[in-house]
Amino acid sequence: MKILNKLAFFSCLFWSSSAFSGTLYSFDNGNLIGFEDGGKISGSYLSEDHADGHLLECKFNFKTTNSSIKKEKNKITAWEKNKYFQAKANGYLYINDDGWRIQINFPSEGCKRFPRSVFSSNKTEAETASISGKKNALGIFVLNKDTNYYSKSVDGFEPIKAKGDNLAKDDLVSAIETQGDFTYIEHYSLTSRAIKSSGWIKSIDLGDSISQ
């Protein structure tokens, strides 16, 4: 009964979300994604760099905290949480006709030592990430369990035995559309925010939106 209730909840949730979809942004550097909906922006940054023989990773999610999106300067809260590390910081998202850039002192060691990028603790040092694409979407989510893709046919949805990609708990995905109990997602790389794969999964396998 609990499973049936949860399925009904997700069906209602995504039916409503489909009616009020927002805009998913991709950027030329492949390290940043953003989602705009109802006057709010959420997004995620991930980049790796091999500096002096050491691997540096800078990773965080963020969302705007002002009441509506402003041209040029928007307050954001950024965070990263895993079993080894938790961090949170406030900063700014700058939006102009050229693209987006982030000003933040994110307290992870990888972000502190990272080379010049679209984020910086000093606005004048930050590069601008140019918008390379826009599409309608339902949001950016994390998976709440290990899952797999399904193929869609006139007879419904069937599991795909081998897709060539592992969909693991806590992986980041964007939800594009829903049909019945299934959602079409784009699965992001573990080393950047470039799309690694895409396909249909069970909607119930989506966890929280990063905008929550």
Rank of each mutant, 00 (worst) to 15 (best):
T178A: 13
L55C: 10
I3W: 05
T64F: 01
S47G: 12
E186C: 12
A89F: 05
I33C: 11
I201L: 08
L206T: 01
Y149V: 09
L55A: 14
K202H: 04
S47Y: 02
G199F: 12
D52P: 10
Y188W: 09
D49N: 15
D155W: 04
A137G: 14
L13V: 01
W100T: 00
T124H: 07
F60T: 01
R113I: 08
T147A: 12
D170S: 13
S11K: 12
D171M: 14
Q212E: 02
L206Q: 03
I104L: 04
L172Q: 07
I102G: 02
D98Q: 15
S211G: 08
V154Y: 06
K123G: 01
W200T: 05
C58E: 03
G133Y: 03
G34F: 05
A137M: 05
E48M: 14
N96S: 15
W100P: 00
A19I: 02
F157P: 15
S26Y: 10
T183C: 13
T65N: 04
N29W: 00
L172P: 02
S67D: 09
S209K: 04
I104S: 04
G207N: 03
T191Y: 13
I185L: 07
G207F: 06
I33D: 03
F14T: 00
T191F: 14
F14M: 02
K135G: 10
F62N: 00
R116F: 01
S42R: 02
T77H: 02
F60P: 08
F119D: 00
G34M: 09
A168R: 14
G30T: 03
T183I: 13
F9N: 11
F10I: 01
N136D: 11
Y150E: 04
S198N: 14
N90P: 05
L143S: 09
K40R: 10
D208E: 11
I140S: 05
S67E: 08
R193F: 00
S16G: 13
A168M: 13
E158Q: 13
A162N: 10
D146F: 06
F141I: 07
K123P: 02
L4W: 01
I195R: 04
E158C: 06
L55S: 14
L24N: 05
L143G: 11
K63Y: 00
P115W: 06
E186A: 13
D171L: 10
I95K: 13
E125L: 11
W15G: 15
I76K: 08
E57V: 15
I210Q: 00
E72A: 14
G53M: 07
I176E: 11
K6H: 07
L143T: 07
L93W: 09
L138R: 03
S174A: 15
F60N: 04
Y188R: 10
Y184F: 15
W100H: 02
